[in-house]
């Protein structure tokens, strides 16, 4: 269910789920224009329409500067679109809310709080009793693999650990949608791989809707049900590709799977083509 037709190649299949998945996020003709100088406008997003089904893991993939993060911020309610609207369960998004939980590349942890304090922050704000919030938070910290680090401050943690805390902090207030903005972009390759695996394991437990921004083709294919490819200047949706790979996904099996390899190669080729064609119109 997307406004942009899927590419008609043999491996791109229409959504054929038995029960019609309900739409949770609807992006309706959204454009975003930034005024860079007095006379020049920068069109970050041009007429984007996209629907996201409940429980889907959707990646937004594109080169830097294609506006993919901006699109995520609009869904988060952190940025208002110049025109068009984003909706969550039919309601226009007018600002941030606990139904949409962000995880940023910069972690954005509260440095004056311990790991436990960070994770408890959301539930406490929502009025959950302290004892209950603490018990839930401790369980989440264990789930993201940081048991024993509850009383550490963010400055004492590595980048990968910080991002685990950030994920736990967001999961703690039970958002319906996770908005992940290049969450593993600042991590080294090894840590990145481990976090991807762990994210998938966590996600497969409750299958929350995830909107995941990345510029890594491998990462998008490995994680997602659907990859939204964007092109830049102006930011547009090029393709929406359903990733029809079995779950639960295991990295060591998947990397050898010809279907996975084909997705990666084909998507990379599409990006190359658009580069050769010069700036997209």
């Amino acid at each position: 269910m997307t406004a942009v037709p899927a590419r008609s190649s043999e491996w791109v299949r229409p959504v054929t789920s038995q029960e019609p998945a309900s739409v949770i996020i609807e992006i309706d003709h959204v454009s975003q224009v930034f005024q860079t100088s007095a006379r020049k406008d920068h069109v970050a997003l041009s007429d984007i329409s996209l629907t996201i089904e409940e429980g889907a893991f959707v990646s937004i993939l594109g080169p830097s500067g294609c506006g993919k993060s901006t699109l995520l911020y609009i869904v988060g309610g952190f940025v208002s679109p110049t025109s068009g609207a984003a909706k969550m369960k039919g309601q226009a998004i007018t600002g941030p809310g606990p139904d949409r939980g962000p995880v940023f590349q910069e972690f954005a942890l509260f440095p004056w709080k311990t790991v436990l304090g960070n994770v408890m922050y959301g539930p406490c704000q929502q009025g959950v009793r302290a004892a209950e919030a603490e018990a839930q938070s401790r369980a989440l910290i264990e789930m993201v693999g940081l048991k024993g680090y509850e009383n550490f401050y963010p400055k004492e943690l590595s980048g990968g650990m910080k991002q685990r805390v950030a994920l736990a902090r967001t999961l703690a207030y039970h958002p319906e949608v996770l908005l992940m903005d290049e969450p593993f972009g600042a991590l080294d390759a090894h840590t990145r791989t481990r976090l991807q695996n762990d994210l998938l394991n966590i996600w497969e437990r409750d299958r929350k809707t995830v909107l995941f921004v990345t510029h890594s083709v491998d990462e998008a294919v490995f994680l997602s049900d659907k990859v939204v490819m964007m092109s830049k200047s102006p930011g547009r949706i090029r393709e929406v590709i359903d990733i029809d790979l079995p779950r639960p996904r295991r990295r060591n099996e998947l990397l050898l799977d010809p279907r996975y390899q084909k997705y990666v190669v084909d998507i990379e080729r599409m990006f190359d083509e658009s580069d050769e064609a010069g700036p997209a119109l």
Partner: peptide, 29 residues
């Protein structure tokens, strides 16, 4: 103060005044 930190607070439901007292103040301390 990092914008993303304030956004994280906003997503948790902190009002602008709460963000000033509970995020900007400690972060800038």
């Amino acid at each position: 103060v990092e914008e993303k930190m304030l956004w994280s607070g906003a997503a948790m439901g902190l009002s602008p005044a709460q963000r000033l007292v509970r995020i900007v103040l400690p972060a800038a301390l």
